[in-house]
């Protein structure tokens, strides 16, 4: 199933992100079940389940990005790309890595600004917990940073392959 990824510190970082995301899957399940038990058995509410588990979806989504990208599980269209000659495909591969890197870094930049402003404005949730919003938002920054690092690596490899006409390096 899911390919195991190893190799270098970037691989370790991507894996660590995925481990935290996996923990968030488990934790959110437990939180939601706790709310069900609290309501149906104890006629009360945890008060925190809905809000915290929403934050956990942020953790799952963003911290797993680098792993998903690196292990080749991000979806792409193969119509033309798959039909190109190895030489041309190496160039297309370099281009698409650049596009993805550009997107990830633009997103990282603006999400960081967004989170920084939440911090300086002392934003808290308007719900029950008044959670400082920058805390869960930091996971978006962290996840996109991991993705950007991973893409810098694979982008460099892709350009090297394109120039040297090497065969695919196999991060796809």
């Amino acid at each position: 199933m899911a390919p195991k990824i190893t190799g270098g510190w970037t691989g370790k970082m991507a894996n660590s992100g995925a481990v935290i995301a996996a923990a968030a899957v488990v934790l959110s399940t437990i939180l939601v079940l706790a709310e069900v038990v609290a309501r149906s058995i104890f006629h009360t509410s945890t008060m925190i389940s809905v809000e915290f588990s929403s934050y956990l979806l942020i953790v799952i989504t963003f911290l797993g990005l680098a792993y998903t990208q690196r292990s080749g599980q991000m979806i792409h269209v193969d119509v033309l790309f798959g039909a190109l000659s190895p030489r041309k495909r190496a160039w297309a591969d370099a281009l698409r890595h650049t596009a993805m890197l550009a997107y990830a870094s633009i997103a990282l930049w603006y999400v960081s600004i967004f989170t920084w402003r939440s911090y300086t404005l002392d934003q808290v949730s308007s719900s029950l917990l008044r959670t400082p919003q920058y805390l869960p938002q930091l996971f978006m920054v962290l996840g996109l940073a991991l993705l950007t690092v991973e893409l810098i690596r694979s982008c460099l490899l892709a350009w090297r392959d394109a120039f040297h006409g090497h065969k695919q390096h196999g991060t796809e």
Partner: peptide
């Protein structure tokens, strides 16, 4: 999409 860009980046860009 034709150069094989991953879906999120193709949509976002």
């Amino acid at each position: 999409l034709l150069i094989g860009t991953w879906m999120p980046a193709a949509l976002g860009i």
